[in-house]
């Protein structure tokens, strides 16, 4: 039985050009799986044999989260709330119900709560314990959301974290940080940008960023290029400042 010593795993050429990159001195090159890939395959085999999972269904879930489920769903909801006061009222009163009525989201795992940004209050969402996140409407969390620096600093120094994301708020703006749990998760309803009167929901939706629904960003300003709107675009990347190991 082969030993599981990862240290001996021969790294494959990163070019993946097997045509000439590898000498064939000792016969055909055999496959190598990473330690994590081995363990995941092991569990999947066991669960499949015991009829706990169906590999095809697993693939469908992965695909759905990679392509279908993402922050565009949340952005659609926000745009609708901006353009329809009746919907907004229902969204703030009972987010699960309101979102369920206008999207295909039907597997809400726990209570969703929408918190509204206003001229007085800015809301920001974190999960200090692990990474509870409204998957169904925002897709999977960005790496920085799961990182220890963000999880700890968001509560202690929200203004500093916002600064890292390029967001500066007036001094008198109250910042509320919401700590998600497995039972209650939060989505921020960002402020509707000025100068968007009369815009349709699809037009508005293009202004809603993922980070603006987590509260580490603001909605894009109309007419500005992506990167001008207070670093929102930058902050969308996984290298965002929140992930920097600042104590």
């Amino acid at each position: 039985m082969a030993t599981g010593d990862r240290g001996h795993a021969q790294p494959h050429g990163d070019g993946h050009s097997h045509a000439e990159g590898h000498a064939h001195g000792e016969g055909e090159e055999m496959s190598e799986l990473s330690e994590m890939a081995l363990r995941v395959r092991a569990l999947e085999s066991i669960l499949t044999e015991k009829d706990y999972v169906d590999p095809l269904a697993l693939d469908r879930i992965v695909q759905a989260y990679e392509t279908k489920i993402g922050p565009h769903i949340g952005a659609g909801v926000v745009a609708l709330a901006w353009s329809n006061p009746d919907f907004k009222a229902r969204l703030l009163a009972n987010a699960n119900e309101a979102i369920g009525a206008v999207t295909e989201v039907d597997t809400l795992e726990s209570d969703l709560v929408v918190v509204e940004n206003t001229a007085e209050v800015h809301n920001m969402v974190v999960c200090t314990l692990c990474s509870c996140y409204p998957w169904e409407v925002l897709g999977l969390p960005p790496t920085w959301y799961k990182s220890a620096p963000y999880r700890s600093r968001a509560v202690i120094d929200p203004r500093g974290v916002l600064g890292d994301f390029g967001v500066t708020l007036p001094d008198d703006r109250e910042i509320r940080v919401w700590d998600s749990t497995a039972y209650q998760r939060f989505i921020v309803l960002p402020e509707r940008p000025a100068g968007t009167e009369g815009w349709t929901a699809p037009q508005l939706e293009a202004l809603v960023t993922r980070d603006s629904m987590i509260g580490t960003g603001l909605a894009r300003q109309p007419g500005r290029a992506d990167d001008d709107a207070g670093g929102v675009h930058d902050a969308a990347g996984d290298d965002a400042a929140g992930a920097r190991p600042t104590p």
């Binding site: 993402g70 922050p71 565009h72 769903i73 952005a75 659609g76 909801v77 745009a79 609708l80 206008v102 999207t103 295909e104 897709g139 960005p142 929901a201 699809p202 939706e205 293009a206 809603v208 960023t209 993922r210 992506d226 675009h233 930058d234 969308a236 990347g237 996984d238």
Partner: peptide, 16 residues
């Protein structure tokens, strides 16, 4: 919301 979601690209994948 669903229709507009389908219609507008851009937001979900930027820099992600």
């Amino acid at each position: 919301a669903r229709d507009s979601v389908d219609a507008v690209p851009g937001i979900p994948c930027d820099a992600e």
